[in-house]
């Protein structure tokens, strides 16, 4: 939570790009690029796995773009995005704005990776994404209308350098509310 109140588990500096900044051409351009991308992706995902349920409405911005800076030792313990902020966080789109020297990975401890051709052999029980400048990660917080427990994730502590991210939480068009709790 970044409402100025104490948060359990998060150590960072953050700000939402609201007001004039929300309508800045760069922000508008990036948000459009994100929505083009995620809705292209969703069309495929819905068809394959029914991730968002039978209706599969388009994804839209649920909140303003948020910029977060983690300095050395800062991080965010395991959490589900759909339980924080507004209730419209069906999916998360995160952008890494700088390459962190060491640490600061985005870690999904309950994620599963397996080879479908070799039965249910699980190759690893977690996914760790390195913060590399320009890289994005997009993931759903729900599956079939319910919280996806595999979406649990954390920002691992920064060991050295600074970690900068921008996050856009996405909701369904019908339920989108420009609300920041």
């Amino acid at each position: 939570m970044t409402d100025g109140h104490v948060s359990s588990g998060r150590t960072s500096f953050s700000t939402f790009l609201t007001g004039e900044k929300a309508s800045h051409s760069l922000v508008v351009t990036i948000e459009k690029r994100i929505l083009d991308f995620v809705n292209s992706a969703q069309a495929s995902l819905d068809e394959i796995e029914g991730i968002t349920g039978s209706e599969a409405p388009q994804l839209v911005s649920a909140e303003p773009l948020q910029i977060v800076r983690y300095t050395q030792g800062q991080g965010y313990t395991s959490h589900y995005d759909n339980r924080a902020g507004s209730q419209a966080r069906k999916a998360t789109f995160m952008l890494y704005l700088a390459t962190c020297e060491s640490g600061g990975h985005t870690f999904f401890p309950r994620a599963r990776v397996w080879n479908p051709d070799s039965g249910e052999e699980q190759l690893c029980s977690g996914i760790k994404i390195a913060p590399v400048k320009g890289r994005c990660v997009f993931f759903y917080n729900i599956r079939n209308g319910k919280e996806d427990e595999c979406s649990l994730h954390e920002a691992m502590p920064v060991v050295s350098g600074d970690k900068w991210i921008a996050t856009l939480w996405l909701g369904h068009a019908a339920s989108s509310v420009a609300q920041v709790c």
């Binding site: 790009l17 900044k21 800045h24 760069l26 922000v27 990036i30 690029r33 991308f37 992706a41 995902l45 796995e49 991730i51 773009l65 910029i67 952008l95 890494y96 704005l97 700088a98 999904f108 994620a111 599963r112 990776v113 397996w114 080879n115 479908p116 190759l123 996914i127 994404i129 590399v132 400048k133 320009g134 890289r135 994005c136 990660v137 997009f138 993931f139 759903y140 599956r143 996806d148 595999c150 979406s151 900068w164 921008a166």
Partner: peptide, 25 residues
């Protein structure tokens, strides 16, 4: 491989200049 949750990562989604500009903004 199969992956759960539904997750995508992509490099170079933003240019270096765009990253810097967002931080500055």
């Amino acid at each position: 491989l199969s992956v759960s949750p539904a997750l995508l990562t992509m490099d170079d989604f933003l240019t270096s200049a765009e990253c810097d500009a967002l931080i500055a903004l």
